[in-house]
Design a protein around this nucleic acid. Sequence first.
RNA 1: GCCGAUGUAGCUCAGUCGGUAGAGCAGCUCACUCGUAAUGAGCAGGUCUGCGGUUCAAUUCCGCACAUCGGCUCCA
Length: 639
Amino acid sequence: MSQLTLTLPDGNSINVESGASFSDAVGTIGAGLLRNSLAVTFNDKHYSLTDLVPADGSLSVITKSSEDGYDTLRHSAAHLLAWAVQDLYPGTKFAFGPSIENGFYYDFDREEPFTEEDLVKIENRMVELSKNKEVINRHEITKSDAEELFADQPYKLEQISELGDEALTVYQVGSFQDLCEGPHIPDTSSIKAIKLLSVAGAYWRGNSDNKMLQRIYGTAFFKKKELESHLHMLEEAKKRDHRKLGRELDLYGIMDEAGPGLSFWFPRGDILRDQIIEFWKNIHRRDGYVTVTTPHISNAELWETSGHMEFYRDDMYVFEQDDKPYVVKPMNCPGHILIYKRQKRGYRSLPVRYAELGTVYRAELKGTLHGLMRVRGFTQDDAHIFCTPDQLEIEVSNVLELTKEILSTFGFTEFKVELSVRDPKNPEKYAGSDEEWEMAEKSLVNAIEQHGFNYTREEGEAVFYGPKIDVKLIDALGRQWQASTVQFDFNLPRRFDVTYTDQDGKDKYVYMVHRAIMGSLERFIGIITEHFGGNFPIWLAPEQCRVMSVSHAQHDYASEVVDELRRAGVRVELDARDEKIGFKIREAEEMKIPYMLIVGGREQETHSVAVRSRKHGDLGQIEVIDFATRILDETAEKK
RNA sequence: GCCGAUGUAGCUCAGUCGGUAGAGCAGCUCACUCGUAAUGAGCAGGUCUGCGGUUCAAUUCCGCACAUCGGCUCCA
């Protein structure tokens, strides 16, 4: 009998008899590995363990403990979902059903909308169907057989018609068959912990010209415990929802009377803004930025020049004044360009770095608005760097350094960096020359690598005017949020004729970089509200401490303490109501105030306060002046 | 913008199979002067999101609008 040679990812190889299954092959590597394995990748195609090894080739194993293992499980759970739907609602048309981060979905086309009750029914059916350890089989079939098999499935037929003529793979579980590249788990016995989460509309192939399908979202884990902890995380996220906390902590909100997507900052929330703005301005000035302020409205000609009127008009607030069209600014860049252009610039005076917390307005589609995360009026922590080609790399590198510093001050230390570059197949749709793009992309890559960031390269994701770096931060619940962006711009300098005079006496287009670190102040405060769960650190806390009197007799003393602390620069409020101390503490705890200062007879005698910390409870008595010093130190250290 | 769900007091939520509504908290008044997460009593508070329609009668049924929520799309 002949032997087949399989090369493993570590470079070693194993031999198996021809006619052996992948499961035999994996067993040769190790019995433990076989127990832990779900499927294999062989010559870049996915196979089930029961499939026979067809030839020599490279083999890698998908194990339960890997990221791919969860993807495989969830992908199979999506098939199980489709099977249950086919079973309960015959006639439903099937679209796509992939695994996604933390879960899976399947898109269905059915006249009747799925209700919440349907979801429960489907989930129960999934559990029943998976009970009997149903085997998930992989078959290869010809294109014409596939067309016959899916004759009444228009979405599958559309997909088949776009595929080549080589054999297609079909996975089958129970009475459900799906066109699918896999991989899948061997049988349904590993699907022990599933939960259907929601149903929502989704366009076929994500294109808004196409029909809207019904997407059912769910998640699956190997162990019940994992599912429980994931569901617990979702509960925790709900509790931390910035819209809820914004209301409960009296920070900010959207007022129906004013309109959707427009945020109001109440006195307590405005302190958050102020603290962040002060920090932001100081750190930027330290790093050689200068701040500017540009008007909220300007005549439309400016936006004709920039190209916004042509490409972006539907999203802009445009109105008439003196028979001329005006625009409420959707971006700060043209304003900064005008400031740059007010004088002739030489290479010696570059780089110029203009920073502005500029509030912009964009008429975003109503359906996309979401608390502070997606609004129509927001304040960008914007800056534009005008520099020479030589300076580009160091400037971008400095931006990334500043990004790390600013975000880590808020407790974010884990990032995902994405570099978006040109689509090499479509070079004509971009502004700027090939050499310029190459040079700019190289500068961005070098800058990223200098900081030791891992990054992913997103081919074709760049906007037409230049390559960009996006930084996503990871919050306390492990969720990703897009915050920072560094975008190179070949377009605006040409449109506005923004130049500098180089060493050789010639005027050249300046290199322009747009960058934002927090993204928008509104969104960023939404993110940190959820990240901290409303328990803002001392330096941000709207109310750092609250003085509360035990009884009548200390009212005057309590208000003296408040005056003293306030004069020292502490954000302090007084609670001298005729209420029991337990009641006052409860309220202060609910408002997540870092320090409660209780004053009774004992404290009055020694000019002290009894400190109760939000985190650690009763800390004992301390003199007023010492407490002031402590809290001011913590504020300065951004604790 | 698209699909689906939701909209009752400042907040959280009951309720009405069609006969114009109720609780807790918050607010106000009074009593209590209290030592580390809710003192007690009373009062007041609603065009049941808005506009139409059906009906003797609509908060309830139907339609439209608006807003919110879950997603999709978009984010030159």
